[in-house]
Structure formats: structure tokens, C-alpha cells
């Protein structure tokens, strides 16, 4: 990652909101177009600004192969995201970034990749999934496990087939928390999909993203399945302001999640307090 020009580091650059996609009753994807393409790595994040209101960190959910237009998938959940959900195509928003390290995609050759998402946590993982789908030849397999609260909240529902049908290497299973009429799929929280995993556990790398409690129980479930902490990457998306390791608030032990993450190897952070 190249360093931002110092003078630009806090300044939101204007981006055009070119499309708003209604994903679920609580989640929208804003497609934004920067003045110049913004190259990023899967897992790196941006700070998206609603002018005069504030900014919030998001990992783009689109493929890093498309730097000229970024998808930002947003759960309506607070002062800033409420305003993002009100934004109409044609509006001008602000963007800073990209920040953080990104997923270690180049270290996955020969590995079985397990992606575990909870709720809107599938958004950052979609960037990883799309990046891997660009060329599946280096990896052995891509298994995706996803859980949402209910059928209506299943994110990117129309796209699951397009991910699996490209190659026999990719499989996808999802679950919703409670039974619903008309749903004949799995029910229960996402950790129920991790029992007796059909994967080569010694050769697997897991990427997990979701709310704090889901990260905790997924980590426990994966350890129970025999994965070592070094094999688990957690999206530690905490409150961040500067995005550059200056403002101090996103630390776990000596790591600033904005700079050293936001996807952290569990082995690095597990012995520090307040991880989950």
C-alpha cells in the first residue's frame, strides 16, 4: 500500500453516488465512483463521509478488480448510516482510503479457504470471495458458510449460485436463525454450520466477519473443530476515526486494527484483553 499524501490524509475526496441497491430491509449497497480509480486490496477499508454529518469505516464489498467503482454495503444502524440510507443516486459523498492491510490473499496457494459470515459481515467477505473467484487455480477449495437472522436479511441472495457454479471448488451453505414458513434450508446460528466440517483442517485458513458475539462463538467453534489460532482471521471492525494508527481508539493490545488489520490473525490478538 502506498502512503497517502500527508496533506490529504484527513480530507474526504468527493465521490459520486451512482447507484443505490436495496439488498435487504436493513441493508443497502451504495455504488460510488471516485474522480480517479481507487486501487484497493480485498479487506482494506475506506472511510465514507456524509458531508457535514460524519464518516464511518467500511470494507468495500466489490471486487478489487474494479477500482473505478466501489460497492459499499451498509447496515442502517446509527446516525451516519441512517443518512447513508437516505442518500439518492447522483449525490456527492466523501471518501478516504484505502486503509489497513487487506486479506493475505497471496498466502492462500494450496490452501482450503473457509469463509464464515454473519449478517452484514458477508459484505467485506464478498470482496475476498470475488477476488478469489478471479482465479481459483492457486487455492484448493473455497467453502462459504453464512448466517442471517431471517430469510429477508440474507445478503446478496441472488448471487450465491453465481459464486458456486463457476467451479466445483466452491461451495456455499447458509442458515437463518429461526424456522420460517417457505424456508426449507438450514436453521440455527452460523456456528451450527461448522460442526463436523468436511475440510482438511490442517491445511485450512478461515476468514470470519460478523458482529462481535458471532466472532467469539465462531472462533470457539473453529477451535473445537481443530483449527489453530494461526489459521483464523477475524474482521475486527471497531470504531475507527483516522484510519491510520494516529487517533488511538481501535487498539487490541499493541495493534491498531485500522493499521494492522482490520483482519487480524487470531493468534496475534488472543492473549490481549477485550478482544470480543
Amino acid at each position: 500500500m502506498s502512503a497517502a499524501k500527508p496533506a490529504d490524509s484527513y480530507v474526504p475526496q468527493p465521490v459520486k453516488l451512482v447507484e443505490v441497491i436495496d439488498e435487504t430491509p436493513t441493508i443497502k449497497t451504495l455504488v460510488v465512483q471516485p474522480a480517479r480509480p481507487m486501487p484497493f486490496l480485498a479487506g482494506q477499508f475506506v472511510q465514507l463521509t456524509v458531508p457535514g454529518v460524519g464518516e464511518a469505516p467500511f470494507t468495500p464489498s466489490s471486487s478489487p478488480g474494479r477500482p473505478e467503482k466501489l460497492d459499499v454495503t451498509i447496515l442502517k444502524t446509527g446516525a451516519v448510516t441512517d443518512r447513508m440510507h437516505e442518500a439518492q443516486a447522483g449525490a456527492t459523498l466523501g471518501l478516504r482510503g484505502p486503509f489497513g492491510k487487506g486479506y493475505p490473499v497471496d498466502k492462500l496457494a494450496g490452501k482450503e479457504v473457509l469463509v464464515v459470515g454473519g449478517g452484514v459481515g458477508l459484505a467485506p467477505l464478498r470482496a475476498l470471495i470475488l477476488a478469489l473467484l478471479e482465479d481459483l487455480s492457486p487455492i484448493k477449495r473455497l467453502s462459504i458458510r453464512y448466517g442471517a437472522r431471517c430469510v429477508a436479511e440474507l445478503l446478496y441472495r441472488g448471487q450465491y449460485d453465481t459464486w458456486t457454479k463457476r467451479d466445483g471448488k466452491v461451495d456455499f451453505t447458509c442458515t437463518i436463525d429461526n424456522p420460517e414458513s417457505g424456508w426449507d434450508g438450514r436453521t440455527g446460528v452460523v456456528t451450527t454450520l461448522l460442526k463436523g466440517l468436511d475440510i482438511d483442517k490442517g491445511n485450512c485458513v478461515a476468514f470470519v466477519c460478523g458482529p462481535s458475539i458471532m466472532l467469539k462463538f465462531t472462533t470457539l467453534a473453529l477451535e473445537e473443530e481443530g483449527l489453530r489460532p494461526e489459521q483464523i482471521y477475524l474482521s475486527m471492525n471497531r470504531r475507527m476515526s483516522c484510519g491510520m494508527g494516529l487517533c488511538g481508539r481501535c487498539n487490541i493490545g499493541p495493534y491498531y486494527l485500522c493499521k494492522d488489520g482490520p483482519d487480524m490473525n487470531y493468534a496475534k490478538i488472543k492473549d490481549y484483553p477485550n478482544v470480543f
Partner: peptide, 13 residues
């Protein structure tokens, strides 16, 4: 550390 989120979530580490 407070983050946005619903009442059922842990909003600060």
C-alpha cells in the same frame, strides 16, 4: 469506543 448498533449488540469492547 462506542460503535453504532442495535440494543442486542455489544457496542463497546
Amino acid at each position: 469506543h462506542r460503535m453504532a448498533g442495535g440494543a442486542h449488540m455489544k457496542l463497546t469492547p
